[in-house]
Design a protein around this nucleic acid. Structure first.
Lengths: 340, 340
DNA sequence: GCATAACTGAGGTACGCACCTCAGGGCAAG
DNA sequence: CTTGCCCTGAGGTGCGTACCTCAGTTATGC
């Protein structure tokens, strides 16, 4: 039979009340009592019954995902995953929702975060770019005991908040490796497209990419990053122009999470099937493009995993538990047509 | 406030006892009562509090992983993951252990399964090759209400039991794609090494591999599968001989889960760095070999995910719930040096 | 040695549900 | 009509923990 708190009290030679005080860090316990209880825990292998804890506390969790307003297909995937989990998690006393705000306006983000009521929200998963204001707002959330997870996006990692997402340097290097090997030693230029090079993710991906290419495939020449600013018209102008001016482009690397706009723009000028194309994130577009060989490989981080992981981490933090690091590492997935 | 069973009784116009009978499928309830309760559930959005259910039932889960006795590094990874989860899951009233038996002896496997006591074990995750005897034994386990998960290994999938693992045809095709693209159009032979071609996984991987190569890289010639039977001495003899007889080998595909033995044998004759090498499963060996370029890519299924998934499925089945299919799909991972 | 603070134990209630008993009502077959 | 069966409600107990009160005990400072 699994030992209960009562057994623990007996084994430690104290009362149930004292056991309770020790287990829940209540004041007015002597060091001696703490010691004897802790020792008894080890000795008899006491483990709190989480179901009973949950029932007695009768506490529920309310988490919010703060996502960018702008965005295309990948963002839709993310919000879709949150919605799906919403239904599932209701059973577990966990309420999840999401909002979309303009993350480019750091001041607005900070203001939004400040407006979050700690009586209503226990944790926030924040997908927003780095800025001093946001850093500050996050720090203040933590002060108010609202757990924060830095979600996918590229703040400089705050040591106080958990991070869910991949190592973007490695992701870029992986893209570089694939482009290098898939181009088979053929010299030429590589077009690199981003939404913006302001964000930490883009910088890190680009850095990993360049490092890999320079080191191992020096006959490939990477062009400066094209920034679309998520503007379809702008992309439709610039990208064909670059393709025109560089007839020896052999590969395209789209390092932003949204590949549709730039690749549709590029397809107006060249047949993507004849180029090596690597993009990020699995979306209906990239998946279809993989299938008909317009894209050769996709570097992805599973949005479902990411959302679940963020929730598990916020829950653990709310319970003052350590999350299981091993389980929460998000993998850099390499998707080919064959392993979709 | 979240509605409780009491609220539900009120809303349905019946007593708590009847609500209980409906919720737990007890006998002696009129169809009318069932209807009005179910309708009230929808109406007020009643959801059982799982913590209270767990506490009241005071039930615990005991699951067993049945793994092969033979095996090298990947098997060690698997058992390691089981051990790790053992400690974590104790908190959740879930006992997990594993045994290793000689899975080649179908009769022995069947006998072992038959000997499992349904009073002691609620679920079995079975990693063993297909055979009529094993199929039969699994069916009898299910009859005794012991949940069964077909774990990673290649039975023909029993429709009654859940399966955790990857699509091995797709895994083989992925390996074929990588070898095809990494060899860059250079004609030559491909050495294919397996432990045995008796098992369903091997057959499917080989089939996927051949299909891909024939379809897209016909200038590559795949040699017949070499079977090592996990015998180091045998591998040390055959593999160098094949390499000697086929000087135009440009790639090696190790389709078994254990890559160490065949690749060490091959390395005695050739420098793996100069060949395209694709293997399966992340182990200390494959990881090190990726790092120093002896292996170009590894096709992997994360053993930690697989173990956790099997446990979640067995738990869901024990609770007569449907597992969440979307979460339990095991990905075919492509590992390069860069995204380890 | 006395006041005060720090500690301890006994006992209770609550959480939401599962599972049990038992009494009584309705209904059909004989 | 009775007998028996199906159905229903009322009420209780227990699961293991959190959290509360209050009386009583032991150290601490002065």
């Amino acid at each position: 039979m699994r030992p209960t708190a009562k057994d623990l009290a007996e084994a430690a030679g104290v009362s149930l009340a004292t056991v309770d005080r020790v287990l829940n860090d209540r004041p007015n316990v002597s060091k001696k009592a703490v010691r004897s209880v802790n020792e008894a825990i080890e000795r008899i292998g006491f483990i709190r019954n989480p179901a009973a804890v949950s029932l007695a506390r009768n506490k529920s969790y309310r988490f919010r995902f703060v996502l960018p307003r702008s965005g295309d297909l990948y963002l839709r995937e993310l919000s879709q995953r949150v919605k799906e989990l919403k239904a599932v998690l209701k059973a577990d006393l966990t309420e999840v929702d999401y909002v979309q705000i303009s993350v480019d306006d750091a001041h607005g983000v900070a203001k939004y975060l400040q407006g979050i009521d700690e009586e209503e929200i226990d944790g926030v998963a924040l997908m927003a770019p780095e800025s001093p204001q946001v850093r500050d707002a996050v720090a203040r959330l933590l002060e108010r005991n609202i757990k924060v997870v830095q979600f996918l996006s590229g703040q400089e990692k705050l040591p106080e908040a958990d991070f869910v997402g991949v190592d973007n340097f490695a992701a870029g290097a992986t893209a570089g490796k694939l482009i290098g090997r898939f181009t088979c030693g053929k010299p030429g230029k590589v077009m690199v497209v981003a939404e913006t090079m302001q964000s930490m993710d883009s910088i890190q991906r680009r850095h990993g990419f360049d490092t890999k290419i320079n080191e191992q495939f020096p006959y490939l020449q990477c062009l400066p990053s094209i920034e679309t600013h998520a503007d379809e018209a702008r992309a439709g102008q610039i990208i064909p122009r670059v393709l025109d001016n560089n007839r020896d482009i052999v590969a395209i690397y789209v390092l932003s999470s949204e590949a549709r706009v730039p690749l549709v723009a590029a397809a107006a000028k060249v047949d993507l099937v004849n180029l090596v194309v690597v993009a990020h994130e699995r979306t209906p577009f990239t998946q279809a493009a993989l299938c008909d060989n317009r894209i050769d490989a996709v570097i992805a981080q599973d949005p479902g995993h990411a959302v679940r992981s963020a929730i598990r981490i916020m829950r653990a933090r709310s319970d003052a538990r350590e999350p299981l690091a091993a389980q929460e590492r998000i993998r850099i997935e390499v998707l080919l047509k064959e392993n979709l």
